[in-house]
Design a protein around this nucleic acid. Structure first.
Length: 570
RNA sequence: GCGGGAGUAGCUCAGUGGUAGAGCUCCUGCCUUCCAAGCAGGCUGUCGCGGGUUCGAAUCCCGUCUCCCGCUCCA
């Protein structure tokens, strides 16, 4: 670890074909990376190891591969539409950035009573520059009666009506502090919208004055006020800008008439949406889990640190369903299980730690989260988050879809909503961490008699001590030289191993000196090299050279595949 | 998005207005050659992209894209 820097690894990854910048010939596409011939093997090996440990070897897990495109309502139910779009404000004085909703939850002056707005044929705009108020309550004459949750259905109507393009932000505080951000028109049947502005108990002192005004000519509500930078006290803040972290796209080739959908920001929701399907199809009993590996997309503000944070990335997620009350015990067990997975694949325990989230940083769905952190060159950062999502998601989807997402508990003879433990790992981050952890620069004294440049010449050997389950190339077949007498036997051995070793990448290389080829294989982490020499032509045996210790052992060609298989499965 | 730094060969970099370079890598050949040996050859560049100034631009100016470090965010 002391040897490695991110720059060295990036260089190696490009040079040897692990990872390339996306669209490099066009100048690059930020936050996206392409995995080359070795990278795809590494990544597949990581995913295979994860799947084996979490699905194949466990009696209580099943797999799933849900679509990336899901119904847009999924993301309203999950909370991503509301919580994944953050209005951000920059302070020009001290260059700090804040979430606008941290700033603007302030005192309201000049509008302390009910504000009635006639919105017939008009557009009500509440702070369309992105301010968020969570002390505004929507009341009014909604067809169908009740306001509370009914309001959300009407808001949905607005979203589906394509006539307006101006953004409308309607905020509602029910008891659970939800707010809704929407785009669209006010439906024609809504005659009147009453906004009641009330004092709010936990008011930070950031906002000096915010007022809510009704423009009688345009029938629009404008929110005005001055915000104070909580860091330096300056009033010199930028307008809030929306940082919407979900990618939008369209279903249907003609955008005008197509419906907008999102590229999923996490794979988890595909599991929740299929909870009922999996339950009935597999007749599972609690506790059980559903595992899924797949791509997810987030419009990151700042991608960076190589593949650590990218806009398109791959997740390995588990949703493990348990009885309410058993959640904390299972949470603890999964934390230990997941930590052990990394060390079991050779990662240095000293480079791993568990970090318990503080209450303030918990995601909106989480009762408790513990991260598995890795000591990256830029510091400790998250490799995997193991969250107790409670019954939040299943209840949300049940409410939004109208489907019953419950488990019938035969013991209690009642329907229950399971709690969920979610170990969610990043494939790309894992790959990066495994590479960093495996990187070594070793001083190798030159001992070979063929080295004419003298004794004791220290040379640096770069190698990846990757766990053999993860190494992209597991066996390299190397004739001692390109001498034509050696080639038929070398090629015979190569063909033998390619077919004889299942799911194993075998590489053949006869270019340049044997020492150079060993070093090349070291640098990509190949655990075993098979060398065909002139003696092989006589005794039908070859040498297996091991990567880490550089030891050699002679094995008859007839037993070679079995010998390698034994080593690779140990 | 803001501030700072940077984009020249596969990699690491030199080149500050006058013919695009070095080291390493890579490729070919020779050598019964086991840990980057030697010898002889060889390939690779719209100098990130677009525009401008100039007799002439990798070099100066403008724009733009990307990368790195912070703010932020999280798998």
């Amino acid at each position: 670890m002391a040897d490695v820097t991110m720059d060295k690894l990036v260089s190696l990854c490009k040079r040897r074909g692990f990872i390339f910048q996306s669209s490099e010939i066009y100048g690059g596409q930020g936050g996206a990376w392409d995995y080359g011939p070795l990278g795809v093997e590494l990544k597949n090996n990581i995913k295979r190891a994860w799947w084996r440990a979490n699905v194949l070897e466990r009696p209580d897990m099943v797999g799933l591969d849900a679509a990336i495109l899901m119904h847009p309502r999924v993301w309203e139910a999950s909370g991503h539409v509301g919580h994944f779009a953050d209005p951000m404000v920059d302070c020009r004085a001290c260059k700090q950035r804040f979430r606008a909703d941290d700033l603007t939850v302030g005192q309201l002056r000049g509008a302390s009573g009910p504000v009635e707005i006639d919105i017939e044929n008009a557009l009500a705009v509440i702070s369309d520059d992105g301010f968020v108020l969570d002390n505004v309550k929507i009341t009014g004459h909604w067809p169908g009666g009740n306001v509370g949750n009914e309001a959300t259905r009407h808001i949905q109507f607005l979203v589906n009506n394509p006539n307006w393009t101006t953004s409308v932000l309607i905020i509602s505080t029910d008891d659970d502090h939800k707010y809704y951000q929407i785009s669209g028109p006010i439906p024609h049947y809504v005659e009147r919208l009453n906004l009641i502005v009330r004092p709010y108990p936990d008011v930070p002192a950031y906002a000096e004055s915010i007022s809510l005004e009704l423009n009688s000519k345009t029938n629009a509500i404008a929110l005005t006020g001055r915000n104070v930078c909580p860091n330096c006290g300056s009033y010199d803040l930028t307008e809030p800008r929306m940082f919407n972290l979900m990618f939008k796209t369209f279903v249907g080739p003609v955008e005008d008439t197509a419906s907008q959908v999102y590229l999923r920001p996490e794979t988890a929701q595909g599991i929740f949406a299929n909870f009922g399907n999996v339950l009935t199809a597999t007749r599972r009993k609690l506790p059980f889990g559903i595992a899924q590996i797949g791509k997810a997309f987030r419009n990151e503000i700042t991608p960076g640190n190589f593949v650590f944070r990218s806009r398109e990335f791959e997740q390995m997620e588990i949703e493990f369903f348990v009885r309410p009350g058993a959640d904390e015990e299972w949470h603890r067990r999964w934390i230990q299980d997941r930590l052990a997975w990394y060390t079991g694949l050779g990662m240095d325990p000293a480079h791993l730690r568990l970090r318990v989230h503080q209450a303030a940083e918990l995601a909106h769905y989480s009762k408790g989260t513990t991260d598995v952190d890795y000591l990256f060159p830029m510091g400790w950062s998250e490799l995997e988050g193991i969250a107790n999502r409670t019954d939040y998601d299943l209840r949300q989807h049940s409410e939004f879809s109208g489907e019953r997402l419950t488990y019938f508990d035969e013991e209690a003879n009642e329907h229950i909503v399971p709690y969920v433990i979610e170990p969610s790992a990043g494939v790309d981050r894992s790959a990066l961490a495994f590479l960093l952890d495996a990187y070594r620069e070793e001083e190798v004294p030159s001992t070979g008699p063929s080295t004419s440049s003298g004794q004791g010449r220290g040379e640096t050997r770069v190698l990846l001590r990757l766990h053999q389950d993860l190494a992209p190339v597991k066996v390299a077949v190397l004739p001692l030289s390109r001498n034509e007498k050696l080639l038929p036997t070398a090629q015979e051995v190569d063909a033998l191993l390619r077919k004889g070793l299942r799911d194993t990448m075998v590489q053949y290389d006869d270019a340049q000196s044997i020492g150079r080829r060993y070093r090349r294989q070291d640098e990509i982490g190949t655990p075993y090299c098979v060398t065909v020499d002139f003696e092989s032509l006589e005794d039908r045996a070859v040498t297996i050279r091991e990567r880490d210790e550089m030891t050699q052992e002679r094995v008859p060609i007839a037993e070679l595949a079995a010998a390698l298989r034994e080593r690779l499965e140990s």
